[in-house]
Amino acid sequence: MRKKLIDKSKCVGCKNCELACIMVHSKTPFPFISSAAGEIVQSRNKIELDADGKLFPEFCRHCDEPSCVEACISGALTKGEDGLVVCDQNICIGCFMCVMSCPYGMARPSVKNDGAMVKCDGCRGRESMACVDACPQRCLSQTDTEDERNGQVIYV
């Protein structure tokens, strides 16, 4: 099972992870072209400041007991056997009960205002995670582990 390791002390706030996320979730791999073509693009992660004012890469944890899945009234959000919590955009009705429930603020309304939520899909179906590949600081890295519990993201 692949998990993401995050060493926040290495983060310099370059936002390459956000850009990479936008790239793999847009129609073209070029955010500015997508954007110019009228596509509204959105990253699934973000870099924030924590209580001490330090940089904090905020990612969906793919929790063991995900509050978003618990709150989902449409059945769009599910936790798969691969441990990933993913939203089926075709089922999602945009009630935003998940938005209200995620303690990390990582279940977010789609900026397209198309009546759906948007969240990290753990790059399911991709060989590696786009954010990890794009991180120049090795703040984000991928690990393979037997541990099926404890979420999919480990902050070190």
Binding site: A51, S67, V99, Y104, G105
Partner: peptide
Amino acid sequence: NVTDAGLYHEAIVTGRDISGDY
């Protein structure tokens, strides 16, 4: 804009001190 609702929810139900929270 309801994007950060989850964070407010968490602060309310835990009743934690928010004075240090940006």
